[in-house]
Structures are given as C-alpha cells and as structure tokens.
Design a binder for these strands. Sequence first.
DNA 1: CCGTAAATGTCGTCG
DNA 2: CGACGACGTTTACGG
Lengths: 226, 226
Amino acid sequence: MRLVIARCSVDYVGRLTAHLPMALRLLLVKADGSVSVHADDRAYKPLNWMSPPCSTRETYPDGAGGGGHWTVTNKAGEQLLITIEEILHDSRHDLGVDPGLRKDGVEAHLQELLAEQIGTLGDGYRLVRREYPTAIGPVDILCRDAAGLTVAVEIKRRGEIDGVEQLTRYLELLNRDPLLTPVRGVFAAQAITPQARVLAADRGISCVTLDYDALRGVDDPSSRLF
Amino acid sequence: MRLVIARCSVDYVGRLTAHLPMALRLLLVKADGSVSVHADDRAYKPLNWMSPPCSTRETYPDGAGGGGHWTVTNKAGEQLLITIEEILHDSRHDLGVDPGLRKDGVEAHLQELLAEQIGTLGDGYRLVRREYPTAIGPVDILCRDAAGLTVAVEIKRRGEIDGVEQLTRYLELLNRDPLLTPVRGVFAAQAITPQARVLAADRGISCVTLDYDALRGVDDPSSRLF
DNA sequence: CCGTAAATGTCGTCG
DNA sequence: CGACGACGTTTACGG
C-alpha cells in the first residue's frame, strides 16, 4: 500500500466525466493496483477512484522533485488522470493479505434460520424450498401451512415498503400457477415500518417480526444448557 | 487527516456485528472524526468504518510504545472497537477543505436528449412536456403518439424492475385523468434487464433501449460536419 | 461471465 | 426528520 499526500487535480473520464480542482488530498494506491482519492471528510467514499484491475503510468517531466501526472486506466477504457503539483508525503507499506471480514446478522442467515425453523410461522408449516425460482427472481421461502395451502415468505432485515412490493410481484406470478394457487404472502423481518404494515394489510399480506437472537439461540449448540 | 499503519483487530457492533482478526491494516482518521479500516485491496470500500459524526477514545495502558484500544462511537450507539498490537506508521496531515467534485450528468442528459428527439420513439410523436407533474412526483416525459394518444415515458440509465414499478404508479394516476386516459407507458433505458422486460410486458408497458452516443451525436454541434 | 438482489449501502433532494 | 431515488453505486451469489 502506498500513501501519498499531494496537491493535485483529478479528472475522471468513463461512465461519466468528473473534475476535481487542485487541492491537497490523499492518494491511496493499493497492492491490487487500485487508486483512490480521498478528501479530509467522509469515512466511506473516496472523491474519485479506479477499481481493480487497472494500471497506472506515472510521469514526472521535471524530475523527481517536480510535478507529475498519473494516468490510471482499466480494461473498459475508463481513465483517471491525476495532475500532481506537489508531494508532501509518500510512503509504502507491505500489509500482506487480509484474513477478511466475518459478518453476523445478515439476511442470508435470517433466511437459513427461518427455513430450519419454519414452524415459527405457525404449527404444521412445512418447507417446500428456499430461493424458489420465478421469472422475475427467486422467492425467499416457499412453504405450505397446516392446511396444505401454499405460502410465499419474503424476508428482510428491515421490513420496508419495497419489500412488500417485491412480495406482491411474486404473489401475482405464483398465483397464476394452478398447482400452487391460492398462494398467501408472509412478510417477515426483524423490524417492520408502520407504512409497510399498512401496505401489507392492504394487499392481504401478513407480517411477522423475527427475533434474531431467539432464532439463533435455538440453532446455536453453544447456547444449549443440556 | 491521520494515517496509521498498524497490526490490529477490529470489532463492529451496530447494525450488524462484524469481526476482523489481527492483521496489518491502514487506519484512516479524517478531520470530521470518521474512521475507516482499509486492507491492501479494493479501491472503494473499507473493511470497516464509522461514519461521521462520531468520536474516538484512545487508550494505551502500557504507554506510548505498547498496544492500545480505539473505541469509536456514534450517536446511535454503534461501536467500532479497534485493538492495536503494534503501530508501524503514524502521520498527520492538514488538507484543508476540499473544493469538491464537478460531475457531468447522466440521466438528466438522457432525458433532455430524448425530449429533443422524441421522434426516436416513433414517427409522429410530439412532446407534451418534460417532468410532467403528478401527485406522486413528476413523470420524466409526457408525449402524444401519431394517433394523438397520451404516452408516459420513464427514463433510466439502467432499466431495472424498480423503474417499471415507478412507471406503473404514474400510469395508474395518469389514467384517472379523463383528459389524458388512455395513457400508454414506455420504459426507456440504455440497457434493460430481462426481468424488467418481463414485468413491463406483463403490465402492457413497452420497452425502448436508448443509444446514448447516437442521441448525443445528433445533438452535439461538434460532431456536425457542416 | 451475466443476471439479480443485498448493502453497516451512501448521498442528495424535497416535503 | 423521514421518504424517495440515484449512484461511476459496489459487492456477493447463483446459474
């Protein structure tokens, strides 16, 4: 990883054109060749960047002390042009390969847990399958209730209006299948906004709030007392 | 801006829980107090971060040379806990305020171009107006076809399912206006996904792919030969 | 590699 | 402050 603090201007020509006037910024060059330009605010987003794979050509017409140009190019022909007036800091550091991030609490995990414990939705529920395919995308969970009627479940971490819309589209399609219809909808999330509840009720979709810790608790062997 | 290269492990507890095992990484502390943790790959996204506003508490129990803890907290109570084993580099740089990015547009430009060249949609089409107002927001373009029937156009750079939903809502409203009904829908984008096409067809909405260069070419004076 | 959905999305704007 | 839509979205996952 190379860290450069420099007075520079930046031009990006690619999916759009963008320009940064001359100012002091951090140039971050990573081991994969990627380049990002950071201002002194906003944690997440660089002002400008080039994602890997890409390559950089550096030129310093007036020698090592003077200004220079970096031209960063990728396969698609997108370009990041960095014009450097002055370099205030330039250091390199070998970090090695990162062991990577372990996440807990995402939607995929919720889906796994609910599929394993489909009885959470009601007694006698049986799983048909996860990621049940339709022409407009997979339904999170398809199952049958105690009466044998089909139920489509959409799972979100946060239940908002667009999730209800998504489930509505699936239900419309699924209900055209004579082998499945009538298909009922269940909207399951850790938290559901009032707006989403109103829309769901209007569409005849029932809402279920999921207790992540409870679902995980039943599943996690380490939490069992016996 | 403060740049720290350190052997560290990181735990995030907030909207989810995440853990990074001990490894060499870049810690980037910006003037707004934000903190991000970068590995030596990927230009855009840090491994972990805390967005501003947030505050950091640093403790070094064994003195300046030894390991330490950074606890970064925000208003919502989310926490980023950084355990530092060793610091290899630590520098501060005053960058000042950035003049900011100038972008040269995408979707707005597409809309202008298509409005100017509404005949792209078919012979005899006439523009009624851009940004035609409705109760739930403006329709990108309203026009009439050769037969004088009303057509609502939704324009996206990338045509996906959300765009079809948006246009559907507009059509529902517009068709309640006795002066306009029947209103037909056209979904126009540089590229349209298969599932968006399926949904559009299902809703009786036609799809048009836009050639940005061709639209611009007709418009751009610099490309004219005479 | 393409298509689709999730994201600690982030970041504007507008009510 | 919350909802909505755009983003050079980026990123992960499945066929």
